[in-house]
């Protein structure tokens, strides 16, 4: 079924164990270029663990994760976390926002372009001597930062302390910061958490914009079903570390295994209201 989609990220048989607990168990799926792939599942299904494996913060015990660039695949499980961002060009955001709180909004975006600036400034030496070549690189970095500030609507807050922004703006800034690393795959860990419906709607626009205009793949963990159903092109459903379904959003929401996972066999506390509504409508 994935034959028609050129895969960007291929995850094959990934297993991540903590002691006796299989947080992610023999999981395989792929995410395509220019598509938004959502990973959903009840709490504790292993979604964030999967993200940490893909972005190198955990090393899975078993499995292979290949990121297909134009010039060939990069095996993510072999790279350190910071090399995954710089070499494989996978960027991520965090469930609990991790901005550089006491630095300005703009500085956050400039730090994200560290690699380019370091190369241009010969490890800051050229910058220390004030050479033109560094100024050129800095100007380019500023242009990119300005572009993304404009995209996320924070252009007027460029000099504000990042930590002083309202919650929704911090979420958007984190996405802008990740995009400033010029990634081919952007991993978003619950980007809509804590957003109000209006902000959540704006986020949908931002994410589809990134997909359509920048042609990169997006991988998304989300609980907010309006986001998942509204923008994702492909949905992977996890439960207890295993994949229980993988399909388009329309088909996934009718999948009996998914409904069972969310409803649970005997208790249904984990059920998000949106899914509950969908389930009721369908049945």
């Amino acid at each position: 079924m994935t034959a028609t989609r050129p895969p960007l990220l291929e995850v094959e048989h990934v297993t991540m164990r903590f002691g006796g607990l299989f947080a992610v168990n023999d999981l395989s799926f792929s995410a395509a270029r220019k598509q938004i792939t959502a990973v959903i599942g009840p709490n504790g299904a292993g979604k964030t663990t999967l993200f940490n494996c893909i972005t190198g913060f955990y090393k899975p015990q078993v499995g292979r994760m290949a990121l297909h660039h134009d010039d060939g695949p990069v095996l993510l499980e072999r790279l350190d976390d910071h090399r995954i961002a710089s070499r494989a060009r996978v960027a991520r955001t965090f469930q609990n926002i991790r901005l550089f709180a006491r630095m300005s909004v703009l500085e956050n975006l400039i730090v994200a372009q560290h690699q380019d600036l370091m190369k241009a400034s010969a490890f800051s030496l050229a910058g220390l001597l004030g050479l033109a070549r560094y100024h050129k690189a800095e100007k380019k970095a500023l242009e990119r930062a300005r572009y993304w500030l404009d995209k996320v609507g924070l252009l007027d807050h460029a000099d504000d302390e990042a930590g002083s922004l309202p919650y929704g703006s911090q979420r958007r800034l984190e996405i802008a910061r990740a995009m400033c690393t010029d990634p081919v795959l952007l991993c978003l860990d619950e980007p809509a958490a804590g957003l109000n419906p209006r902000e959540s709607h704006e986020l949908n626009g931002l994410l589809t914009g990134i997909r359509d205009e920048h042609g990169i793949g997006l991988l998304l963990i989300e609980h907010d079903m309006s986001v998942v159903m509204g923008i994702s092109d492909w949905v992977v459903v996890l439960d207890y570390g295993r994949k229980i379904a993988e399909d388009t959003p329309e088909r996934v929401r009718r999948d009996p295994a998914v409904i069972r996972a969310y409803l649970g066999e005997e208790e249904n506390e984990d059920l998000p209201p949106e899914v509950a509504r969908d389930v009721e409508e369908d049945s």
């Binding site: 910071h82 090399r83 710089s86 630095m103 370091m118 400034s121 910061r177």
Partner: peptide
Amino acid sequence: RLPVGRAWEALREDEIACRSLGLNP
């Protein structure tokens, strides 16, 4: 005002975020 100095400050603020942006701690 140079990449190295900003990286130092970023490291002070959040090491994990640094790594996620490709900065080598």
